[in-house]
Design a protein around this nucleic acid. Structure first.
Lengths: 326, 326
DNA sequence: TAAATATTGTCACACGTTTGACATTTAGGC
DNA sequence: GCCTAAATGTCAAACGTGTGACAATATTTA
């Protein structure tokens, strides 16, 4: 491996000088700078970030913990996070925690071991204390962790309300909602509450199904089919994620239900992917770019100054993407 | 930050002993082991991997370079890679290189700087020499890089042939193919060749469009619409990726073309995602699990023994996923 | 030309861990 | 209680880089 001293030899200067050039400190002449840069280029030299971090500098590493990048929503989010962080000089260590608390715990431990400068967490199988124990700057996406850890999320309550209003407006009589497994600190609770509230204002009450987030699509299909073939079948379904909405549409087609005549369907997330490949789906779109930008901004603030004051919660507005399913 | 010497103090032993426990070398009694483990737990101690790697150990880091995890295919692949690598004790640094050679170059440099043990690359905007320059173990997904870098891919030629045969079998008269931008070392060339060959055997020749991989879906839609509204419009389209196939279906519906009566459509990739959410699409499925397992296996071999002999190319069979679009 | 300043070199220590050499203590077996 | 082996401690060097102190030049300024 080519190291600093090798560069020094080739450039014909002392190791200290090379270090000075790299870190741009002390006083340096143009000519030596050039000599050193040339030598670095010639040897394809990269300062060993292990060594520099060990020496006291930041690692410039950020840990990302999300359920799975195989999910298009998290895929899009992680992709944006990586791109923006990279542009700011940070590197990304990725963890797919799935719905496995043990894996998430292992992820945290390894991120600590790797001395990451901070963590952005979008998977939350764990309790508060495990995250606080790390002593690292953390930003949480869309789930309550603790007072000290800021949450960034879309306005779930507003999204739920808007979905409810759309249903009311469409003249839906038997509204339904499909959420993922309820957890005390889950954002879907807000979507649920907003939905209920908007419906209640119009004198409607919604029935509800719970389909665990990580359930296989096939099993979800089965349950949706049962839902849509039961006697008093719903004529409007709000799904708290777009993928489930797609499954509902799939079952509807299979059962020859006309959408939106027989059944209205609304999703949630509205990724660019969904907008491009399923423009027909009416959905509540999270401002994914802004969410990412904000999370990064907050995290970097925390990294720069550990005890800078941040709000406990940052809520960004959602937008209705009008398709043809309502 | 809690360090090895802190653990030693709490456990009431010498730092060396703690190190011995962690690395399980030298002779140790059960009781001291327990004491040390207890202290580690109590302090929530994690050995600083920077320091241990610097000292000579592996970093247990693998770099992943792919166009973007926002793409469901690469999302699925990266997700599997991370999961399997994590289980083997490796951590993952993620790079979305997009179609930007500069970003890819920057990724490589930073992976070198971070002393990764190896790289799995699925983005290939760069030439051979930039990868060889790294001096690192590398496995390439689906694209030729150089003699020394093994390629793992699905059997693109076979996939193309099967698509062609499906078209022939469906009685298609004016077959078409949509590929991404041709590059000399691109796998889509093989898909093209296989497709042409199968059609030729039946006395057919296909027309061809080229839609750059990273083109926005909206722009792709425009081009596809032009294709499907021209005088001699094709009655069978093979797309070298599933997403483009979805766009074709979308346009077909818009133009009220019956699929497969008026138009047969075949995709390529067949991720679990696609199989679940678009079971209607007939597609050529890459064995994504096997591809991932193989890539990891080969990479770890190379890491264990830098000059172990590996084949230049590993080709895994594809499978037709029969939907209703042919 | 002398003084002041800018540039570069030398040296040492630090970061946290691993590991080898060696010394010392403890335990077990007779 | 002696001998052997096992267990633990002490110490130092190493990994590659950063940085401060100080000395030695080279260059500029007066």
């Amino acid at each position: 491996m080519v190291k600093l001293t090798d560069v020094a030899k080739v450039a014909g200067v002392s190791p200290t000088t090379v270090s000075r050039v790299i870190n741009n400190y002390g006083s340096l002449s143009e000519t030596t700078k050039q000599k050193v840069f040339a030598a670095m280029q010639q040897l394809n030299y990269q300062p060993n970030s292990l060594a520099r971090s060990l020496q006291g500098k930041q690692t410039k590493l950020i840990g990302l913990i999300f359920p799975s990048v195989a999910n298009p929503f998290f895929g899009a989010m992680v992709s944006l996070l990586e791109t923006q962080l990279f542009a700011k000089g940070y590197r990304v260590m990725l963890c797919n925690a799935g719905d496995d608390p043990d894996k998430e715990r292992a992820c945290l431990r390894m991120l600590m071991a790797n001395q990451v400068d901070g963590i952005i967490a979008g998977a939350h199988n764990l309790g508060i204390q495990e995250y606080e124990q790390t002593g690292l700057p953390i930003i949480s996406f869309d789930r309550y962790l603790s007072k000290t850890i800021p949450i960034v999320s879309s306005d779930n309550a507003q999204g739920g309300r808007q979905a409810g209003q759309l249903m009311v407006h469409a003249g839906v009589k038997r509204p339904h909602i499909i959420t993922s497994w309820q957890q005390p600190n889950s954002p879907t609770n807000q979507r649920l509450a907003g939905y209920y509230a908007a419906l209640k204002a119009a004198g409607l009450t919604a029935s509800r199904s719970i389909l665990n987030f990580q359930l296989s699509p096939t099993l979800k299909l089965v349950q949706i089919k049962q839902l849509l073939t039961r006697a008093e079948r719903p004529d409007g379904i709000f799904c708290t994620d777009d993928l489930t909405a797609l499954l509902v549409l799939q079952v509807a087609q299979q059962l020859q239900l006309q959408v939106p005549t027989d059944l209205s369907v609304i999703g949630y997330d509205g990724t660019p992917f969904m907008q491009a490949y399923h423009p027909e789906l009416t959905t509540i779109s999270q401002p994914i770019d802004d969410l990412v930008t904000l999370m990064i901004d907050l995290l970097l603030q925390r990294i720069k100054n550990t005890d800078c004051h941040l709000e406990a919660q940052y809520t960004l507005p959602v937008k209705v993407i009008a398709g043809t399913t309502v």
